[in-house]
Amino acid sequence: MRNALFALLFCFTPLHAAELTLELPGGTRTWEATTLLAHPQARDVTIQGDVTYKTTMHYRAVPLAALLEGVKADQHLQAVALDGFAAELPAAPLLSTQGARAWLAIEDPKQPWPPLGQGKPSAGPFYLVWTEPSAARIGPEQWPYQVARIRYLPAVAERFPALLPAAEADAEVQAGFAQFQKHCLACHRLNGAGDAQFGPDLNIPHNPTEYLAGDFLPRYIRDPQSLRRWPQGKMPGFSREAITDEELGQLIGYLRHMAGRKVAP
């Protein structure tokens, strides 16, 4: 869910086929797009209301669970895109074979997908899409496109202690930390912590709760262009289906709490 400047693109030629690297507990494997298109579990899937294209889309895709050899439900994965977007993904939904189901869509160079905008490439060559996403409340940041790598990593709290609320923080702040991981960490860092290379840090030098007073911050999160019209703006709006008013309050509570816990990178 982001518009970006794509400085690096895959080239679909016999000499340089699009590749996806999987770094998993069982080892590292690189898949070429042509191999995945011929995978025995590949099938045609229809995605209603595709998060990126905003319409019904049809893809050739492989169940992501079929590629996650050795991954367990309680583990954590990260999908890294070409533009620095880094989606943090609990493994359990990715491994599910019922309800919400994750698919790796593969762009066929003979049938390329539509561009993301004028002068922009498509969402390919690899795009994580979902069937029945509402069954597990899959958020828009869990649909990474132009994916180059999927890797197993320790949980966010273990990797980035600078993101942690104070030990005495109440349950609402802790819940807000979970919302931050789900909705914000794919694009933003906080206290310099995180793997994303896409959006600005949300605490250094200033936390948005310090300069967006009243109801301006929730309004901005719901619809960034409603506060500041900027054609080059990359941040999407987050609907109530993606994050409820209660969850949004928890997220803002976490950000406000972290404004008092600045750690210079």
Rank of each mutant, 00 (worst) to 15 (best):
P63Q: 13
H39N: 14
L37W: 09
G84A: 09
D50P: 04
F126W: 13
A42D: 03
E141K: 06
R261L: 03
M1E: 11
M1T: 09
P208A: 05
L128W: 08
H39M: 00
G70W: 01
Y127Q: 01
S96M: 04
G249T: 02
T97Q: 13
L37E: 07
L212A: 14
N191I: 04
P14T: 01
Q181V: 14
W103G: 01
L82F: 08
F198L: 15
G233Y: 09
G27C: 12
I106A: 08
F238P: 00
L217E: 03
A17H: 03
P25R: 03
P205N: 11
E172G: 11
R29I: 13
L217V: 09
H39W: 04
A61G: 11
R228H: 14
V80S: 15
F6V: 07
I243C: 09
E172N: 11
L68K: 11
L94E: 06
K120L: 15
Q197D: 04
P165K: 06
G84W: 02
P140L: 14
P231E: 12
D170E: 12
P93A: 07
T35E: 15
A65P: 04
L153E: 14
R261G: 02
G233L: 15
Q48C: 09
P115N: 13
Y220M: 06
L248T: 02
W31H: 15
W103P: 02
L104F: 00
L5W: 08
Q118L: 11
R240Y: 03
V147N: 06
A38V: 01
V147S: 02
T35S: 15
Y145S: 07
Q98F: 10
L251P: 07
A87W: 09
M258Y: 05
R228P: 00
E246P: 01
H257N: 07
A33W: 03
S96V: 03
A7G: 14
L202F: 08
E107C: 07
A242F: 05
Y254K: 01
L77N: 01
F180D: 05
P90R: 09
N191Q: 06
H206K: 13
A148C: 01
A162C: 03
D74W: 03
A175M: 05
T244A: 07
L217M: 08
G249L: 10
D215A: 09
D170T: 08
R2W: 07
Q41I: 02
K110L: 13
A102Y: 08
Q118K: 15
L116T: 12
A186M: 08
I150H: 13
D170G: 15
R101G: 03
S122N: 09
E23G: 01
Y53T: 04
R189Y: 02
Q232I: 05
I106N: 11
C187R: 05
Q111E: 15
P90K: 10
D50N: 14
Q41V: 05
R229I: 11
E88Y: 12
W113Y: 04
E69K: 13
N203L: 13
W230M: 12
A7I: 02
E132I: 00
P205K: 08
R261C: 00
H76V: 00
Q181A: 11
G194F: 09
I204R: 12
Y53V: 04
L116V: 10
F160K: 01
L227P: 04
I252Y: 09
T46M: 10
L64T: 05
H58G: 06
P14I: 00
R219L: 15
K120F: 11
V62G: 00
P93F: 09
